[in-house]
Amino acid sequence: MRKIILLAALITLIASTGADARIKVKGRGANMNFDPASLPPQYAETFNMMTKKCSKCHTMERTVIAIQTGRAPITGQIFDRQAVKAYGIKMLRKPNSEMSKPDIRNVVILLNYILDENKR
């Protein structure tokens, strides 16, 4: 009986922990990415574009960890809205990123949305 109670408590704990993360994450390691199903439909196109373009040079895991921890995983710098914009500008100016200004703007809006959702 004690085991059943403990198991139920554990399941409840896991379930409640999952409920906190507004934007879910799929995959592990290099395959890690935000779950598109947990994003509003208006972001679907931007999400797909972001995944395609960003993955040319680095894994999406880097972005996910930055959002989840509030820290850029390599530099340890704060990853907030201002940092999102700065990274966006960096990627805009990066040769062969093949991202236009409107592309970057949309990605910044998307990441800001995810940041805000994760703060709730």
Binding site: T69, G70, Q77, I78, D80, Q82, A83, A86, L115
Partner: peptide
């Protein structure tokens, strides 16, 4: 940006509460 007075992060707002420390 690390340990630099004039670097960007120094001028940013305090970090958001990390979702996963």
């Amino acid at each position: 940006g690390k340990g630099s007075k004039a670097s960007k992060p120094a001028a940013t707002a305090p970090a958001p509460a990390p979702a996963a420390a």
